[in-house]
Amino acid sequence: MNWLSRLTTPGVARMFDKRDTPENLWIKCPISGEMVFHKDLEAGQHVTPAGHHMRIGPDARFKYTFDKEWSEIAIPEVAKDPLKFKDDKPYPHRLAAARKKTGREDAMAIAVGQIQGVETTVLVQDFAFMGGSLGMAAGEAFIKACDEAVERRTPLVVFTAAGGARMQEGALSLMQMPRTTLGIQSLRDHKLPYIVVLTDPTTGGVTASYAMLGDVHIAEPGALIGFAGPRVIEQTIREKLPEGFQRSEYLLDKGMVDKVVHRKDLPKTLGNILRVMLKRPKANIAVKTAEPSEA
């Protein structure tokens, strides 16, 4: 609120509000400190010239991943605030704020489309929604994505991004660890590939469940991936952590991920892996003949 909003009608104020977003036009690269113009950043799939992979939400991810169109699948409804959780603010207020900020119901979005011509179910976790936290809604969305994949006989690709479980749902969020694992069992029972793409950051209960149960683990460069957060580890062992600890490249070195792949190469890598797993012919033939999905 400012003097303008007090003096003008809501319509006029809104007009001025919309223009008032200069802070989003230039984004600072966390690696190099370079200021990058937002249009250039978008053109580069939100990877800065220095190679930093910025966090992105479901819309951008779907766009970068699918060949053409995709159709979104609504995530299931869940019980609202069963714990009546309150810290400084009641949990429903935090949820409402996150919904307003992201335009989504919760931290996960599901879509179906083609990756290099392979019909695939894709689940994207959105760190912008309460830190991507795994609560009942995210857990149900994950199970829904598995069910959709089984019903449509498609592989499932999951892009993870989360600080961990959603504390505001207490043990109900903890239960999403075995629950999501049951979803993966359905995929395994039907021999449907389950591929995890770990993005920055993926920690806590999310890493300790579905993020580490993929047939294949791919990580985006430089992503923080671990069980305990660096702060917790430092407090426990009272030492500074080594440079690069818990980053994608470190996990590759330790044998926890199969590949570290640049964002722009992900569709090709995913398509290639899926096509081989599913015994489909090479992508260059199939992509040309692929029909646009009936979204």
Binding site: M177, T181, M212, L213
Partner: peptide, 22 residues
């Protein structure tokens, strides 16, 4: 939560153990 535990795949170990129960 320790360096060695992370290095040897604490998350994967927990996830697999949960899966094995199920």
């Amino acid at each position: 939560p320790g360096i060695g535990a992370e290095e040897r795949g604490q998350s994967e170990a927990i996830a697999r153990s949960t899966e094995r129960c199920l």
